[in-house]
Protein backbone atom coordinates (compact mmCIF):
# COMPACT_ATOMS: atom_id res chain seq x y z
CA UNK A 1 0.00 0.00 0.00
CA UNK A 2 1.27 3.43 -0.88
CA UNK A 3 1.73 5.66 2.13
CA UNK A 4 0.20 9.12 2.24
CA UNK A 5 3.02 11.64 1.99
CA UNK A 6 2.83 15.41 2.22
CA UNK A 7 5.75 17.83 1.93
CA UNK A 8 5.45 21.32 3.38
CA UNK A 9 8.03 23.41 1.54
CA UNK A 10 9.03 26.74 0.05
CA UNK A 11 10.11 26.99 -3.59
CA UNK A 12 13.43 28.59 -2.62
CA UNK A 13 14.61 26.17 0.04
CA UNK A 14 17.38 23.89 -1.24
CA UNK A 15 16.63 21.03 1.14
CA UNK A 16 12.95 21.14 0.14
CA UNK A 17 14.05 20.64 -3.46
CA UNK A 18 16.39 17.81 -2.44
CA UNK A 19 13.65 16.17 -0.37
CA UNK A 20 11.20 16.23 -3.25
CA UNK A 21 13.86 14.97 -5.66
CA UNK A 22 14.64 12.11 -3.28
CA UNK A 23 10.96 11.12 -3.14
CA UNK A 24 10.62 11.36 -6.94
CA UNK A 25 13.76 9.25 -7.44
CA UNK A 26 12.19 6.57 -5.25
CA UNK A 27 8.81 6.75 -7.02
CA UNK A 28 7.03 8.02 -3.92
CA UNK A 29 3.91 10.03 -4.67
CA UNK A 30 3.46 13.08 -2.46
CA UNK A 31 1.34 16.17 -2.02
CA UNK A 32 3.48 19.29 -2.39
CA UNK A 33 2.31 22.10 -0.11
CA UNK A 34 3.88 25.48 -0.84
CA UNK A 35 3.80 27.31 2.48
CA UNK A 36 5.18 30.46 0.86
CA UNK A 37 2.05 30.80 -1.28
CA UNK A 38 -0.48 29.37 1.19
CA UNK A 39 -0.51 31.16 4.54
CA UNK A 40 -3.13 28.78 5.98
CA UNK A 41 -0.91 25.82 5.15
CA UNK A 42 2.04 27.65 6.73
CA UNK A 43 0.06 28.07 9.96
CA UNK A 44 -1.00 24.43 9.85
CA UNK A 45 2.64 23.35 9.45
CA UNK A 46 3.82 25.53 12.32
CA UNK A 47 1.02 24.33 14.58
CA UNK A 48 1.52 20.67 13.77
CA UNK A 49 5.32 20.64 13.93
CA UNK A 50 5.70 23.31 16.61
CA UNK A 51 8.49 24.97 14.67
CA UNK A 52 9.13 27.16 11.63
CA UNK A 53 11.78 25.38 9.57
CA UNK A 54 11.12 23.79 6.19
CA UNK A 55 10.84 21.19 4.84
CA UNK A 56 8.41 19.27 7.02
CA UNK A 57 7.51 15.84 5.72
CA UNK A 58 4.27 14.21 6.81
CA UNK A 59 4.28 10.45 6.29
CA UNK A 60 0.97 8.92 7.39
CA UNK A 61 0.68 11.59 10.08
CA UNK A 62 4.26 11.15 11.30
CA UNK A 63 6.17 14.43 11.00
CA UNK A 64 9.82 14.68 10.04
CA UNK A 65 11.50 18.09 10.18
CA UNK A 66 14.27 18.65 7.65
CA UNK A 67 15.72 16.44 4.89
CA UNK A 68 16.52 13.53 7.20
CA UNK A 69 16.98 10.75 4.66
CA UNK A 70 17.30 7.95 7.20
CA UNK A 71 14.12 8.95 9.06
CA UNK A 72 12.22 9.35 5.80
CA UNK A 73 13.35 5.90 4.65
CA UNK A 74 12.34 4.40 7.99
CA UNK A 75 8.91 6.02 7.95
CA UNK A 76 8.35 4.80 4.40
CA UNK A 77 9.58 1.33 5.24
CA UNK A 78 12.31 1.47 2.59
Amino acid sequence: MDKKVKVYSTPTCPFCIRTKQFLKDNNIFFEDVDVAADQEAAKEMMQRSGQMGVPVIDIEGRLIVGFDKEEIKKALGM
Partner: peptide
Protein backbone atom coordinates in the same frame (compact mmCIF):
# COMPACT_ATOMS: atom_id res chain seq x y z
CA UNK B 1 17.05 30.77 11.39
CA UNK B 2 20.33 30.88 9.51
CA UNK B 3 18.69 30.59 6.07
CA UNK B 4 16.57 33.51 4.92
CA UNK B 5 16.19 31.92 1.48
CA UNK B 6 14.63 28.79 2.99
CA UNK B 7 12.44 30.04 5.79
CA UNK B 8 11.80 33.66 4.79
CA UNK B 9 8.32 33.10 3.31
CA UNK B 10 7.08 31.80 6.69
CA UNK B 11 7.53 35.27 8.15
Amino acid sequence: TYCATCDGPLF
